[in-house]
């Protein structure tokens, strides 16, 4: 089956100019290197990593909101990497994004109904009355009743604003949703609501979600599959439970180690690996092909990829 979203060998290089001296030094920073990912239809793929790991840049490239330096982006099997603004527009309907900070993403001067209906308006779908009606339906679907249509963003709580942001993203019935840390800014007692909402909508609308997060606890409850990013590259990818029970890469393990315990009884002294120690501890495998002496992403099981050095 064609995946909802496929990334092939995506790279993003930023050119940096360093200050100092009469002649500036230039250096290239590889924010994302050679990332290949498949988001199957009707699944949730977690993209996990710390700040600077390249996870957000990868998500933004998938949306064509950041231009990749090289590689390909396929939406529903179509290569959209090189499409111009006009040619991209129909694909924009199929891919939507929700950010962490929904407050700054909602126009304070518009009512919630207008905010949610705006994508319909932009794509010229239906009459104004139809658009308004659909927007109210969508608000109901995301757990806000129709009376909210006439309200403004500042009247809402953080969780409600995130519901509006999700309603706006989903009103075009996209195939792919990129959710970049959508629960990080929320209160603990509200987080579960938004996770449940995403789960319900995914099942109901047949959505495929790329869920970008640093919170492994949330990822465990929400995703089918997890890809772990470290220093701009994917170091491990597997079914969610495999990651939690049988992680092989030292970085994945150190991420898991860092999750706070769920009960004080399980308190333990931890040992933390530095970046250099993680690089040095790259797994060495034999029997998977010819050795190149360099770390590469290897399929070690049907559903498990791991960065390792072949021997």
């Amino acid at each position: 089956m064609t995946p909802a979203l496929e990334l092939r060998n995506l790279c993003k290089t930023y050119h940096l100019r360093q200050s100092g001296g009469v002649f500036a030094r230039h250096s290239d920073h590889l924010a994302v290197r050679d990332v290949s990912l498949i988001l199957p239809k009707n699944q949730i793929l977690g993209l996990v990593g710390e700040s600077g790991s390249g996870k957000t840049t990868t998500g933004m490239m998938a949306m064509r909101l950041v231009e990749p330096s090289s590689g390909q982006i396929l939406v529903g099997g179509y290569d959209i990497t090189a499409l111009g603004h006009a040619a991209l527009k129909p694909f924009r309907r199929q891919m939507q994004v929700v950010f962490q900070d929904s407050y700054s993403a909602l126009d304070p001067m518009m009512t919630l109904a207008q905010i949610v209906a705006e994508p319909l308006h932009i794509h010229g779908l239906g009459t104004a009355a139809e658009q308004a009606e659909q927007a109210l339906d969508m608000l109901v679907k995301t757990g806000l009743d129709r009376s909210y249509g006439g309200r403004y963003p500042h009247e809402l709580s953080g969780g409600q604003r995130q519901r509006v942001a999700i309603a706006r993203a989903l009103i075009l019935r996209p195939a792919v949703l990129v959710a970049d840390e959508p629960t990080s800014a929320l209160d603990v007692s509200v987080k579960a609501q938004i996770i449940n909402l995403l789960l319900d909508l995914q099942a109901e609308m047949g959505l495929s979600i790329l869920f970008i997060s640093h919170d492994l606890s949330v990822v465990r409850s929400l995703t089918d599959k997890v890809a772990v990013m470290f220093q701009g590259r994917i170091v491990e990818e597997a079914a969610t439970e495999t990651i939690f029970t049988d992680a092989r890469h030292p970085y994945t393990r150190s991420l898991l180690q860092a999750i706070p315990v769920l009960n004080p009884r399980e308190r333990r002294a931890r040992r933390f690996l530095s970046r250099a120690e993680i690089e040095a501890a790259t797994p060495r495998l034999s029997g998977y092909g010819v050795s190149t002496g360099k770390p590469e992403l290897i399929q070690i099981a049907p559903d498990h990829r791991l960065e390792a050095i072949l021997q």
Binding site: A192, I195, T245, L262
Partner: peptide, 12 residues
Amino acid sequence: SMPGRSAGKQRL
């Protein structure tokens, strides 16, 4: 409501 308390994709 704490996420990640048990294994598997599930409503909280």
